[in-house]
Amino acid sequence: MSVEPGLEGPTFPPLQTGVPLGARVDPFARAVAQAQGGEVEPGTVHYAETDRALRLAVTFAPETPLRHAMGVVLAVELGLADAIGALAPPEVAVHFTWPAGVKVNGAACGRIRAAASTTDPAAEPDWLVVGVELDVSPEPGTETGRTPDRTWLHAEGCADVTVPALISSFARHMLVWVHSFMADGLGPAHAAWRAKCDTLEQDITEPQAGFFAGLDEHGGMLLRTGSGTRIIPLTTMLEAP
């Protein structure tokens, strides 16, 4: 992200530390690699210096079993939605698809990623990394009208939103939701996330076919099929470190 003269890069709250990376570096992969080596403190935000996309990763050190700690994913998603809402015109709508899709004005615009030191829901992870990716502006020459199911923030009336401002806004709003999750449990985030999910109580095909009936107490999907209702836990979104 080349910062123009007179413009500042992103800023972070006192409990977070920003680590800038090259435009072609994957912040999620870097954060995971450093967490595996025990090199990164909780609250570290790795971010790519690029003006075309928001790409960052936040490192957490949960002190609860993984099944509960995964609720921070919902907190991160809500922080992103609030960050966009604080900078974008009021008509811009942000929605989620379970577990990790981010939509702007009804079209796919980004995703959330996660990896942890363990995949055992009952184990307490040494670290948990949550990545955020949001498409801000298309590559030059891209004909955005040819992809109605995909969009970019700048194509949705947000041409004045810069990546540094978005990172700064995200850092503040995400911290509010994370503190809420730590202090009050998943309840508040659970309710707010449901309100922003546009596939809830509908027939879906992804991640599996069925009726999306709701979320369990840990943010897992309640999927109703012809054979009954079952839970798909949030831990299924974890990527191999």
Rank of each mutant, 00 (worst) to 15 (best):
R113M: 00
A114H: 04
A116C: 03
P121M: 03
A123S: 13
W127N: 01
L128I: 05
V129C: 05
G131M: 08
G131Y: 04
E133H: 14
V136Q: 06
S137N: 10
S137I: 04
E139P: 05
G141S: 09
T142W: 10
E143Y: 06
E143F: 11
T147Q: 15
T147L: 13
R150K: 14
A155M: 02
C158W: 08
C158T: 01
A159N: 00
P164S: 06
P164K: 05
S169E: 13
F170H: 00
A171C: 08
M174G: 04
W177P: 04
W177G: 06
V178H: 10
H179T: 15
S180N: 14
F181T: 00
M182N: 15
A183P: 02
G185A: 09
G185D: 10
L186D: 08
R194D: 14
A195Q: 14
A195W: 07
A195N: 09
K196A: 14
D198L: 03
T199E: 14
L200I: 12
Q202M: 03
P207R: 00
A209Y: 12
A209F: 13
G210M: 03
G210I: 06
G210N: 03
F211H: 11
A213D: 09
E217S: 15
G220V: 04
M221R: 07
L222E: 02
R224A: 14
G226W: 09
S227D: 12
S227P: 02
S227A: 15
I232Y: 00
I232G: 09
P233Y: 03
